[in-house]
Computed example of a mutant assay.
Amino acid sequence: MVRFTFLLLLSVTLFGCNKDEEPLLIGEQQYQDSDYLIFGRYAGFCAGEECIEIFKLSENSLSEDINDNYPDYKMPYQGNFLPLTSLKLLDTENMLTQTPAPILAIQDTIIGCPDCADGGGVYFEYKMGDVRRYWLIDQVKQNIPNEIHSLVDEINSIVDTINE
Rank of each mutant, 00 (worst) to 15 (best):
S61P: 01
L104R: 00
L9M: 13
H149V: 11
D68I: 05
A105F: 05
R132S: 12
C113I: 08
N67S: 07
E125H: 12
G48S: 05
V159F: 07
G16F: 02
N146F: 08
S61D: 13
G129F: 04
S58N: 15
G44T: 07
L7H: 09
E93P: 01
M95H: 05
L90I: 00
I158M: 13
P102K: 01
N69M: 06
S11C: 06
G112V: 03
V2F: 13
C46M: 02
W135S: 09
P71E: 11
N60L: 09
Y70T: 11
E64M: 11
F39V: 04
D153G: 00
L24V: 14
P71A: 13
G121Y: 10
C17I: 10
L90Y: 03
Y70P: 00
T97H: 05
D160L: 10
L87K: 10
L104G: 00
D35Q: 10
D115S: 04
A105H: 03
Y36K: 12
V152E: 04
R132A: 10
Q139I: 02
D65G: 05
I155C: 02
Q30W: 05
V152R: 01
L57C: 08
F6E: 15
Q142F: 06
L8H: 10
Y73C: 06
D33I: 01
I66N: 11
Y126S: 13
N69P: 07
Y31I: 12
